[in-house]
Amino acid sequence: MVRAADGKPIAWLSERRTPGATPEGRARQGRGGYFVKYQPSRSSLLMAPALVWLTALMVVPCALVLALAFFRRGIYGGIDYTFTLENFGLVFDPLYAGIFLNSARIAGTATLIAVVIGYAAAYAIAAAPRRWQPVFLFFAVLPFWSNYLIRTYAWIVLLNREGLITQLLRWFGYTGEPPSMLYTEGAVIAGLVYNYLPFVILACYAPLSRLNPELAEASRDLGASAATTLRRVILPLTVPGIAAGAVFVFVLSIGNFVTPALLGGGRFQMIGNLVYDQFLTANDWPFGAALAMALIAIMLLVLMAQALATDRAAGRAAEARGQADG
């Protein structure tokens, strides 16, 4: 690290495209450079523990997994430290690419359903009397207090051939063979929606509760129907919440391996199961690492899309505010 004469750290200043544009910049030029003394602020000191934690427990393990993906699998399992790119090539093999696409389809369907149900719930909560809203939010989050496995097992109890749905069908007079609902793709999607729905409700509630009611009233006064007001006014202004909720559900669903294993009965392989199998069953850690890196790349793309959508929505909201003020 570059240090000043008094021993304090110095950071490179990169803020000037036109160095002589400001009096401060001209003064620095006069002193012979773009270096300024770096004074660690209180906020950077407060962030330091979190950054150390993230670096040690997120960045370093991810870097190790990435490094692992460039080696070969040993003959008897383990790792042969010979550089290769074939693990990444294998990720694009039609067999594994198909599993990626299947996982994206299942996660995408779960996300769509969760967003529709979660947005409706968040809208209803935001429209409820103010004193009831914290109560409804509490009950929306309460199922989260139970264990993920227990919540998933609850769906096994519900969907199995002797479960509540079959009992209800029989109660209504159905006498045929019980429908097979467990160990289907629908069961996996239902489990994913159920487990991640509160994320969407919370993410969508925040922008909906802050929404200026006068905007909707103005839209109705100008002759728009309730559906048009929702589509043209409320939905565009709550895109950041929808995008955040959708990203939560999609990212957590696409890498999930517990729900497909329990509710899919092993018939539906998702990327999470594939990575799990490579590490713990096939003992092919380098290929498992390449698959995990591909999964991280997909998640990064989704996060970038979310940031873009949020940015555009913020721009639209600022433009609308500017027009209203003008």
Binding site: A124, P143, L164, L197
Partner: peptide, 13 residues
Amino acid sequence: ALVLVFAFLYIPI
């Protein structure tokens, strides 16, 4: 809508 969502959340448990 709220009742249906809470039913979906609580019936399995």
